[in-house]
């Protein structure tokens, strides 16, 4: 490190421009190196900090790699049975309508075992936020095919690639819930580049703001990587995601409220 100049003049409190938010705990994340779950956690926590709602927010952790999310967010959290986070969020939000309530769910949790809970919460328009991490695979259990697995995509249960003739078609559940009258805001984002992280953070902020205005269910999908399940290095997984996931799951807003009055 001898060719590095002294940074003592710069590394001072008054020059601080970015540090880890206090809405995350000091626990080391249990995620694999480079996994988008960590980045998604961080920007959710930053939005909670910036909105000043740390003591008014209740998160629901799913089953999946993020089952331990309650160890990482310094907010009230409850862990739900697999796929049932929207049902639990409905109950919590109805009992405590002044709280900000969000679920955090993977694609296996939200779009396979929890499909009914997802669709009915979105159709009812219960007033909470769903954050949906779509990595196209069951990460935690060893990379099995999920409803979101792309046509031709390899997984541990589709080792030659997903054959839609025998394994069915991938489910674009985000487009599906956008059709339902109860959703006010439906968007698809990513967190692998600085620009995408900044956009995704704005989307999460909007989702929480709409919830604060009782506008219905806000739904933020984050297309993410599972480098362990995809069997790639984190950098290659991010490139693969751009080349393969984004054409099928295009980024951007799918449904926005008629008028923004923020």
């Amino acid at each position: 490190m001898e060719n590095i100049p002294t940074t003592a003049d710069i590394v001072k409190e008054e020059n601080l421009v970015y540090k880890k938010t206090k809405v995350l705990t000091d626990n080391i994340l249990s995620y694999c190196p480079g996994c988008g779950h960590g980045t998604a956690h961080r920007i959710i926590a930053e939005v909670i900090e910036e909105m000043g709602i740390q003591d008014k927010t209740i998160g629901i952790a799913p089953v999946g790699c993020s089952v331990l999310a309650y160890n990482f967010f310094d907010i009230d959290m409850q862990q739900a049975a697999h796929g049932r986070a929207p049902a639990l969020a409905t109950a919590i939000k109805r009992l405590l309508p002044d709280k900000f309530v969000f679920t955090y769910q993977g694609d296996g949790d939200l779009a396979a075992i929890g499909t009914a809970e997802t669709i009915h919460a979105c159709n009812r328009g219960d007033n909470f936020t769903i954050i949906f991490i779509n990595n196209g695979i069951y990460g935690m259990t060893g990379g099995q095919m999920a409803p979101t697995t792309l046509p031709g995509m390899k997984s541990s249960t589709s080792p030659y690639g997903r054959d839609t003739q025998t394994m069915g078609n991938p489910l674009k559940i985000t487009e599906l819930v956008a059709q339902l009258p109860g959703t006010c805001y439906v968007t698809r984002q990513a967190v692998h580049t600085p620009g995408n992280v900044r956009k995704a953070k704005k989307a999460l902020r909007l989702a929480f703001e709409y919830q604060g205005k009782n506008m219905g269910l806000s739904f933020v999908e984050i297309v993410s990587n599972c480098n362990s399940g995809w069997k790639m290095t984190p950098r290659n997984a991010n490139e693969w995601m751009e080349d393969n996931m984004f054409p099928f799951y295009p980024l951007g807003d799918i449904k926005t409220p008629a008028k923004l009055e923020l």
Partner: peptide, 16 residues
């Protein structure tokens, strides 16, 4: 801040 913004593990603090 680009590097800090994409770090999944919030490892980087930035000064300017």
């Amino acid at each position: 801040t680009n590097c800090a913004v994409v770090c999944p593990d919030a490892v980087i603090t930035v000064y300017r």
